[in-house]
């Protein structure tokens, strides 16, 4: 199965690991990702704060490129990019005049014939099907993850159809179940981590993250699993800070879901986190999984 792929800026930078792992496990699943040509920034949440027109026009360009590449589905791993692109797509459908105006400037016009999916959407669908049968699954023991979805998996600034339950999403749990991991149920699956406000309203963001952390610990979770690079970065890079501030002793690793899937698919730590590159998660997860990896 061939899919168009839009990694977005952060997957080339701070979330490079996510890009790497997504490509790795998709390939193992027989899903071929084709990064679209010359994609540009989607504007993330910032464009909408400055310029409503550009908030649609920026993702529109990428949509146009993806649609003209001949694929029927566009996969976006980054939650912010996914949210922007889905919303823009819906707005372009709802406002045809706007679509014409934008298309005038685009070399690759938006035709509205592509399905936009998040990595999680595809994983949930494909891992529920027969694809797993071909893979020898490693039995992962000792994982009690709390699946943390953040804001952008189910809540959008514009009405778009949401497949998962908005308030209690289950997609990650289902994917993990498919590889034999049972996640804990907890309160703050979709509570905001503070997102970019960590930069300009740090204390508020730290308090929110501590709240999330506390409940995950109270539910006896031993790791957090995410799909959003922003959440991953916040929960991990700020962990020391918010735990110290709120007097939390424990620490939890924050995995992209791709990492756990990768482990179950039998990839080694080296495969998933190539040492020669400049990235790794901050946590030493070998402690958790021992020699099984």
């Amino acid at each position: 199965m061939d899919l168009a792929y839009y990694p977005g800026c952060s997957l080339y930078q701070s979330a490079m690991l996510y890009n790497h792992q997504t490509r790795l496990i998709f390939a193992r699943l027989g899903l071929h990702l084709h990064e679209i040509d010359d994609w540009s920034c989607c504007g993330a949440t910032s464009a909408g704060k400055i310029n409503d027109f550009m908030a649609i026009a920026l993702p529109a360009r990428n949509l146009g490129i993806a649609e003209n590449s001949g694929f029927s589905e566009l996969v976006i791993p980054c939650a912010a990019c996914y949210s922007r692109t889905v919303v823009a797509q819906k707005q372009l459908q709802d406002f045809p005049l706007l679509k014409n105006e934008i298309n005038q400037e685009l070399s690759q016009k938006v035709k509205d014939n592509i399905r936009v999916s998040s990595t999680l959407d595809v994983l949930q669908r494909e891992m529920g099907g027969g694809r797993l049968a071909a893979i020898d699954l490693e039995k992962l023991e000792g994982f009690r993850p709390a699946c943390y979805y953040g804001c952008m998996h189910t809540r959008f600034p514009y009405d778009v159809p949401v497949a998962d339950n908005v308030e209690n999403p289950r997609a990650m749990e289902e994917v993990l179940k498919a590889i034999g991991i049972k996640a804990v149920d907890w309160n703050y699956k979709t509570l905001c981590c503070g997102a970019s406000s960590v930069i300009y309203n740090t204390e508020c963001a730290l308090d929110l993250m501590a709240k999330i952390m506390r409940d995950a610990l109270a539910r006896d979770a031993n790791c957090l699993v995410v799909t959003c690079p922003m959440c991953q970065m916040n929960m991990e890079s700020q962990q020391e800070k918010f735990c110290t501030k709120h007097n939390i002793k424990e620490r939890l690793p924050v995995y992209f879901i791709t990492e756990l899937i990768g482990m179950a698919f039998g990839f080694s730590k080296k495969d998933l986190q190539p040492e020669d590159d400049m990235f790794t998660t901050g946590m030493d997860w070998t402690q958790l999984c021992g020699d099984s990896v």
Binding site: Y12, D38, S107, E236, S237, M278, T280
Partner: peptide, 28 residues
């Protein structure tokens, strides 16, 4: 902190579609 966690990257990326983008921006 980010550097220690190997989060900072010095590579540079850009898109060739900048012209299109700036035309759109003018329109806005």
């Amino acid at each position: 902190e980010m550097f220690k966690q190997k989060r900072l990257h010095l590579s540079f990326h850009s898109s060739k579609g900048r012209d299109e983008i700036s035309r759109l921006y003018k329109k806005s």
